[in-house]
């Protein structure tokens, strides 16, 4: 079973490395999420050097099909976030 990291692991890593309390670290993580989300909400790309880029794509309505029953169902238009990893991040997977 592969390990799953959660918020807490990152909160601890920040707290250990920067020497701030877990509470402060936790608050700042939420601020990072909030900032990224609010930028994406405005339709802006979020570029993090040596990590990757988050961008929002608008998907149009299309007809999908339930693969089990073959019944056609409309898939509503929606916004999705795509992440493209930077070359630095990709280089860990050679």
């Amino acid at each position: 079973m592969k390990k799953t990291w959660t918020r807490n692991d990152i909160i601890e890593a920040i707290s250990d490395n920067v020497g701030i309390s877990l509470t402060e670290s936790s608050t700042m993580i939420e601020e990072i999420f909030e900032f990224i989300l609010s930028e994406l909400e405005k339709g802006y790309d979020v570029k993090i050097s040596s990590f990757g880029t988050f961008s929002v794509r608008h998907k149009k309505t299309r007809i999908g099909r339930n693969p089990k029953t073959g019944i056609e169902v409309p898939i509503n238009e929606r916004n999705v976030v795509t992440f493209s990893s930077s070359n630095v991040l990709k280089s860990y997977f050679k």
Partner: peptide, 24 residues
């Protein structure tokens, strides 16, 4: 803080591990 945040995710991924951030 910002660097450690992204480096931690990178570290987890490079070990072939998953990072689950609820709400994100």
């Amino acid at each position: 803080i910002v660097n450690v945040f992204f480096e931690t995710i990178t570290k987890a991924l490079s070990k072939n591990e998953r990072v689950e951030l609820r709400g994100f």
